[in-house]
Design a protein around this nucleic acid. Structure first.
Lengths: 333, 333
DNA sequence: TTGAAAGCGTTACCAG
DNA sequence: CTGGTAACGCTTTCAA
């Protein structure tokens, strides 16, 4: 390994040392089948010996492929997005892709950021924000940069990986109904998020099939605090089950309900959606519908790579099943 | 704005349309003072009109500056790192810098990742992991890439921004002592993290000055679950105050103590360090020492930019004060 | 199977 | 104050 200060070792350096042309070195290093096995091996050995590191920037300029994926992360107060980040980074690394952070947290992606981002010739974008109004997607579409949405419905020219929000919510409703619950409260997020909408609809739909309408419908943004506030409003309503469209909201609801003197689940069952890490904590033991996050990330990168390899590949939406995980926060059969 | 499919608008395109040389366009666009105001304005107007977007990749190759900062994020289960991410992304954007994610979560940075990272000619790195054994830092140092550590002590050739962990912990101890606590338990993280170590030492030091030693010293990793386990072990010890070196641990401790039948703070005061968002939730109301995260991020980027502008700038460590925020989890005077 | 040479879009050095 | 021109390190036709 080279620790010296000397001039950087490049493909040209190697080509001279090996007595072949730069093109040959370039091809050999990338495993081009046209190069003979013997040459390939000797060049690989030489590269290792000299401590050669390919210059991704130069490669990007020459090939038009940066190896970079733009990442737009949703509100990071929600642990869901953080889990997503971690999974995505690991999965991407194994594919030789890196993430350039375009956005993290709330608020829209500003034009400035988006523009600068395009300058890096991103190969594609992963958009995980639940926010419907993401500028980033629009800009990518305009410039024909492949986009995959995760946990969010497709829009514009984009592929998407979601979980079956509607079915998950329906299942939750069914289980609650079977267990005898009748006075339902729903905490939703209005029109802000497509998964939120689907979850609410799925739940209400199943209720309607049982001839029921909720005794309360509270609106919140997807945060613990908003959930807590909604929960406070529900104390006097005394529903016997509440369904929040995301776990982070459900946790707030649960704490507020308890602070209001109600016992969970004895007096009221509380359920959510996502299965974030906090949901499993003994203090909450939240019954929730789990998104198969890891699988979703894998499929998302599959989709992205496919679109990068073939720009004419059609947009595709993949829906993975959600699975209700039963914990102590709800009285189920 | 150009939405067409035509050849990309480059500096050369502009130079021809403007009847000047590419160098002039390049300089004008970057606001080089040598270019006359009038030319500067007309080129800027032309660029806007043509929808010109600077190619960051080409710029990186030519100038050696990528405009990219490598980011190594600690275990994202700890909301602290998530907050850090969000703040850093926002702050960096205002400075025209973007983050390339090198690492997120636990585990060491593998050689592969680090190597690929160098290929992007990162201008610098921000390392937020508390983990002492970060490979990334080593590799950056070897290649003379400026590094700033956040919430972590400096090592190798690196600058750092930390908060005064020792003083914060001492203050916490003082407040607890003044309020009459005598049976102390400490939950620490062993040698894994420098801030953790400093906090533990600060706390114990202050105790020693009062002639006390803790009645229990539990080791944990910095996670809720480990905190919960430590808390369970503390139930029978019945300390009248426990200090956990990080909030995420403290939350686990608190829940375990409560599950064990102890009331917080009536039977036992619980305190932490960091002031993560969860600490403020009514269900916890954790008394903790707050890290001035936002200021830390700002200073970290200052340091990084300074080192980028002047590679010979000396390493620098900035320590910001911690501030105890009193909430309901501890009986204080 | 390999080589030569022309870019990729920008910056930077050296003249003028 | 502005223009030429050579890099930057790699990929990619086109030839051989």
């Amino acid at each position: 390994m080279d620790d010296s200060n000397g001039p950087r070792v490049t493909i040209v350096t190697l080509s001279r040392r090996a007595g072949v042309s730069p093109s040959t070195v370039s091809r050999a290093l990338r495993g081009d089948p046209r190069i003979s096995k013997s040459v390939r091996r000797s060049i690989a050995a030489l590269a290792a010996e000299e401590g050669y590191l390919p210059n991704a920037v130069a490669r990007g300029l020459a090939s038009g492929r940066s190896g970079l994926i733009g990442l737009a992360l949703g509100p990071t107060e929600n642990p869901l997005y953080t889990q997503l980040l971690q999974l995505a980074v690991q999965e991407a690394a194994t594919r030789g892709l890196r993430f350039l952070v375009m956005h993290a947290g709330e608020g829209a992606v500003d034009e400035d950021t988006a523009g600068a981002i395009l300058g890096y010739q991103l190969d594609g974008c992963l958009i995980t924000s639940a926010d419907l109004s993401s500028r980033a997607a629009e800009i990518c579409a305009r410039h024909r940069v492949p986009v995959v949405m995760v946990s969010r419905v497709a829009r514009l020219h984009a592929s998407a990986v979601t979980c079956d929000n509607r079915a998950g919510a329906r299942e939750m409703a069914s289980l609650l109904l079977e267990a005898g619950h009748r006075r339902f409260a729903v905490v939703h997020v209005g029109g802000r998020s497509s998964p939120g909408l689907e979850r609410e609809h799925g739940f209400l739909e199943r209720l309607a099939e049982a001839g029921l309408t909720p005794v309360a419908r509270e609106e919140a943004v997807s945060s613990y605090e908003a959930g807590y506030a909604a929960g406070q409003r529900l104390v006097d309503v005394r529903p016997d089950a509440v369904f929040a469209v995301s776990d982070i909201i459900a946790l707030g609801v649960m704490d507020a309900l308890r602070a209001g003197g109600l016992r969970v689940p004895e007096d009221v069952s509380v359920t959510g959606f996502d299965d974030i890490a906090e949901a499993a904590r003994p203090a909450y033991a939240l019954t929730t519908a789990a998104q198969p996050l890891s699988a979703m990330v894998t499929r998302a990168l599959d989709l992205l790579e496919a679109r990068i390899a073939n720009p004419f590949a059609p947009d595709e939406t993949i829906t993975l099943g959600a699975r209700v995980v039963r914990r102590g926060s709800a009285r189920l059969g």
